[in-house]
Amino acid sequence: MRVTVCGTNCRAFTKMCRPTDPSLGRATQARASRGWRRFAVLVLAALAGGAVSAGEPDPLGSVMWDYHHERLLEGRPYVFDERVKVMAPPFAEDARQVPIQVDARALDGQIERVLLWADLNPIPRIAVFQPGPEVAPLLAIRIRVEQATPVRAAVLTRDGVWHVGSSRVDAAGGGCTAPSVVRAQPGWEDRLGQVLGGRYPRGEQSRLRVQVSHPMDNGLVGDIPEFYLNQAELRGADGQPLATLELFPAVSENPTLTLQLKTDQPAELWLRDNNGNEFQAAF
């Protein structure tokens, strides 16, 4: 048997998976209003003072920066801030499972929420993380990437400024459109919602790790509609929320999550998917 190595059709695959959000056209209109917004950003940053500069161009030079700034950060003031650490491997060894870790502990105490996305993914958004006072602003998660892309974490602080950390992942691509590994495993439905994990002491604090059995279908593979975990909440002993997490189907199959609790109190993770299935696991 002989198999042709690479014809011209290799590339067609990635092309259809580029961001084709119809609202992309609006970026042109938005450009007109960007002038005064830039100005406002500069003024705000000047008022905020400190070592940060504002309205600066994307250090990674992504063609999608302005678009995501408008759409995901609602065009609000931003700074590229090294205190927001985005750890990611320089290349995706497996485009279906690319580990991302965000550490914004340097901004702890001022954080409203943390937004994660990958600029060039067909589904850019990864997660929105809102750590309460008892949870460290630290999150590790694995994602699919469709092609080489910047990965971002934007931390909204109480003063209304987004602090953006970036990392770049090189990739051969295809992670978003690759056939499901989970669905190829016999009996996966029986394991749906099974939670594996552990709790690991870190000084006074606790690492919490989970791996949830779920296919995280993103609607881009075959005729399989979106079916993914979209909500998670870390809860204390009396059920009060300690942190919330909104998830998007850029997150890999069988999501693996790492969180850090600042105390040794008991905790539970509650999860829900877009079909309304709810799952719960105690640490």
Binding site: E93, D190, G193, L196, G197, G198, Q211, S213, L269, A281
Partner: peptide, 19 residues
């Protein structure tokens, strides 16, 4: 990337069975 998931898996406990 290749191997660590196996080591994690060996370390994880069952926190909640599938409902």
């Amino acid at each position: 990337n290749h191997l660590y998931p196996r080591y994690e898996g060996a370390q994880f406990r069952l926190l909640a069975p599938a409902p």
